[in-house]
Every structure is written in structure tokens, then in C-alpha cells.
Design a protein around this nucleic acid. Structure first.
Lengths: 156, 156
DNA sequence: GCTTGCCTTCGAGCGCGCTCGAAGGCCTAG
DNA sequence: CTAGGCCTTCGAGCGCGCTCGAAGGCAAGC
């Protein structure tokens, strides 16, 4: 959906194995420059999650969402911005409870910024470790493909 | 030698900080031939999983393990080799059911090699996609760290 | 002989992150 | 006036991958 498209653009801009450029990040951030209030279905499409998931995030205390006169959720720019952050963190493996902790800190005021920064730094390291792990598994898988003989061991 | 190339690429991908996948490197390097039969505790330590997990994999049909006179499991070189493969695939995100399918093919004989190769090729692509996803999230996280202001949005 | 400790089998339970269903409300098109 | 469709709340259920506990066996050390 929208996020897939965004991802495709960003990934296309990535090239073979280069680090994403500032432009790519700007493209990602671009999502909220002109965001008008939207329904749960629209927000879900934008974020590439299900409406159920958005309600679940709200129940989990990750985001507050207003209601219109019919009682329907209205996702404004701030909510979408937060959800972009949340879905990105989820996609990169941050657990719900860490996200809940982070959001609690955000809502607690700016004196919690150092702790929030710590959380991000730690998450950055977690992502890096995971990438290295995957890179290693990728190399092993490619090796096995190249030498394919069918056994479960490398059989060198 | 092919193994040297693999290790070089893997190590090059590791970068500077931390060696989170020591066990994997160890497993990569340690597959030679000199694996002696071992107990479940030893195998678990070797593979960096719990004995419970090894029993679970056996129950799931992923590996057959012999028993000694006391009825205790004995992991021989072939079992360890298979488990190294299995744990590596698990670590890189291959679902149990795909692994069960793959193993069923292995046990079905060598005429299933093309299909097995297909599975590996697809898994390789999955790992690559995941790495790209994580690389993107990493860039976004680093961007947020660099411009840290505490809000949940990029605040560009 | 008895304790300690690792092992066995089996089924049940858990933590996570959704995902779904029931029961009903509001709004619009035909 | 009614049907369709999207929305609401709430609690329950699910799929995955373990993880654990109970009940008991065997072997070594004190």
C-alpha cells in the first residue's frame, strides 16, 4: 500500500548496499508534511497495518486518537506522525513494552529526553546486531546455495 | 578456499563493534569433521539453544537422535550438522513449518534437490529484504538520534 | 543405601502481537 | 424504509516458538 510504495522508493534509492541518503530519509519524513485528518481505514492504508492493529495500539496506550461526532476515530497529523514512528520501531523489532515505556516518557515531559535517547541508542545497537546476524546467515545461505548438494551440512 | 572467502565476507560485514554472533562464527568454523557424539546438554551449549528446544525440534520431526543404553540422547556429527543448519535458518527467520518441509524433502531423497534449492533461494531473498528493511529503520533511528528533540515525529 | 544430578516422556502453559467476532450505531443510496 | 457498509467496544482466540513441570529412571559419589 502506501507504505509499500514508500519502501519501494526508498529501497530503490538505496542501491546495492549503500547507506540511505538524507534524501531518502526526507522522503520517509515527507509523509507527514501534508497530512490531513483521516479515518482509521485511511490511516491503516497509509501505515500498512490493519484497522484492528491501530485500535490495538490505541488500547495499548501508544497513541491517543480523537473521535468525530459519530464516535469514529480521527487520525490527525500528530497521531499519524507518532504511528509512523511506532510502526517503524515495530518493524525493526522493538517490543511493544519498550514502545509503551518510550511513549510514557514522551508523555511525561521533556525532562525524560535523556532516557528516551538512551532507548533509541540501545535500539540502534540492537538493529545493528540483527543486521550483522542476518548478514552472516545470508553468507552461509549463499555458500550453501553455491555448493548445493542437498545435505543439511556444508559437506565441505 | 571457499571457506576462507565466506569467513572473510562474514567478518567484513561484522564491522567494528561487538561480536554478537560468536556462536555462529564458531559453528561456521567448527563444522570440519571432528564432531564427536555428545549429550543433549553439550549439544545445546554448542548450538546456543536450550535442551528443551532440542527436544522440541526432535518432536517436530526436524532431526532424529539416537539413544545410549540409558535412553539418553546422543547427538552425533550428522545430527549436529543438521542442527547447525536448522538453528542458522531459525536465527535468520525461517519458520518452523518451512524447515519441516525442507527436512521432509531432504529425507525424501535427492530427487527433491531442485525444490530444496528453490527454498534456499527464496530464503536468501527473504533475508536480503529483511536486511534492507532493517537498514532503512537503522537509518531512520540514527537520523532521529542525530536530530533528537524528543517528539515522536521526525520534526524535520 | 541414599543423595545428587542429569536425563527421560508427555502434555500443558506462556508471552507476544496481533486478529477476530459479536452486538450494535450512524450514515447514505436506492 | 431498508440495506449496505464502515464504524464502535469488548473480550476472546490464535499462531508461533518455545518453555516448563510433573513423575520417574539411571549412575556416580559420600
Amino acid at each position: 500500500m502506501a507504505m509499500d510504495e514508500l519502501m519501494s522508493r526508498a529501497l530503490a534509492a538505496l542501491g546495492e548496499d549503500g547507506a540511505p541518503s538524507v534524501e531518502v530519509i526526507h522522503a520517509l519524513a515527507d509523509l507527514d508534511a501534508s497530512t490531513e485528518p483521516m479515518s482509521i481505514a485511511e490511516a491503516a492504508a497509509h501505515l500498512d497495518v490493519s484497522p484492528h492493529t491501530l485500535r490495538y495500539y490505541e488500547r495499548a496506550g501508544l497513541v491517543e486518537v480523537g473521535r468525530d461526532s459519530a464516535g469514529h476515530r480521527v487520525y490527525d497529523a500528530a497521531a499519524i506522525r507518532r504511528l509512523v514512528f511506532l510502526t517503524r520501531m515495530r518493524l525493526s523489532g522493538m517490543p511493544m513494552r519498550d514502545l509503551q515505556h518510550y511513549i510514557a516518557l514522551v508523555d511525561a515531559g521533556e525532562q525524560t529526553e535523556p532516557e528516551r535517547l538512551d532507548i533509541l541508542l540501545e535500539h540502534r545497537d540492537t538493529i545493528r546486531r540483527r543486521i550483522r546476524e542476518l548478514t552472516l546467515s545470508l553468507a552461509a545461505t549463499e555458500y550453501k546455495i553455491a555448493t548445493y548438494g542437498g545435505s543439511t551440512g556444508p559437506e565441505v
